[in-house]
Design a protein around this nucleic acid. Structure first.
Lengths: 153, 153
DNA sequence: TAACATTAGTTGCATATGCAACTAATTTAA
DNA sequence: TTAAATTAGTTGCATATGCAACTAATGTTA
């Protein structure tokens, strides 16, 4: 008989997820500082998305990075001040800005990659590929549960 | 042959973890607002720890909640202003403050519990207990990897 | 016990964040 | 084609956060 949902927060995945992510964030932050990189993890994610596909507009970037558009606005402003990106008003739709990564942005981004790889190598040490795949599968299920409309009925 | 660590960020657990946690945070935030609860998730975690054991000092609370002590200072100040907690200077060590949850704090905390339970029920829907336990096991391994000193050699 | 080191907590400075209200541009409808 | 609705982005206001430098109290040690 295991139809009931666990009642105690402690038994659920939630606090474990939160704690793990926090630990990863601390690791990343510290590594960034140690390497003298003037780049927050949030900015790094934006650079990553732009590196994959340049010229997206802010709406797309906000969606892709799971951020409120106002938060993205300010993030981009800081990145623009550091010359990591540039905004260019779209000619087809003057409300929209295309966002481009600069060569300095690419340089900084490429410097951050080894840090990410080190983090991944560290966290996945002694964990089998199968275990990792299983976890990703479960995470996807959770994401589906949280975002599908039926969940809220 | 699977001794190599995955090189691409996309294949690793990290972004899945980050995204899942963000989605959970959005859910929680929205539910709190909908229920008219003047309580952030961070404040909720503090209340939870105090509800378990009252009178801890700020250092302990910062450690338990994985927060910088300065961040905790400000969190507590806001909570004190809302009369959810009180600080009392320790008589044995006048540098330290004991932190106590008030009756209003307990009331607010108990109102938040159904929200947490709803979140857990939603996220764990159609996920077996075994799957959940496996995930927690893997999360613990990751936490160990990130915090054990050997990881940094 | 006086000098030094450590510890608990606070504050300045910088970053990131969400919601709601807003502007300006574009699209839809009447 | 003009009015209404929608959309992209910005800004005000509030929260939360880390690091480094700081104060005050306690502990250590010479």
């Amino acid at each position: 008989m295991k139809t009931d949902v666990k009642v105690d927060f402690e038994d659920s995945i939630a606090p474990w997820l939160g704690k793990t992510v926090k630990i990863l964030e601390y690791f990343l932050q510290e590594e960034m500082l140690d390497h003298g990189l003037d780049l927050s993890k949030e900015q790094m994610i934006v650079l990553k998305k732009l590196n994959e596909q340049d010229g997206r507009n802010q709406n797309e970037l906000a969606f892709l990075t799971l951020r409120d558009k106002s938060s993205l606005t300010r993030l981009l402003t800081k990145m623009e001040n550091k010359n990591y990106i540039v905004r260019k008003q779209s000619e087809e739709d003057r409300r929209a800005n295309h966002v481009y990564i600069t060569s300095l942005g690419r340089e900084i981004y490429s410097k951050s990659r080894p840090i990410i790889q080190k983090m991944i190598a560290t966290m996945e040490r002694n964990i089998s590929e199968e275990e990792i795949d299983d976890m990703i599968t479960t995470l996807k299920k959770i994401q589906y549960n949280m975002t599908s409309k039926k969940a809220f009925l």
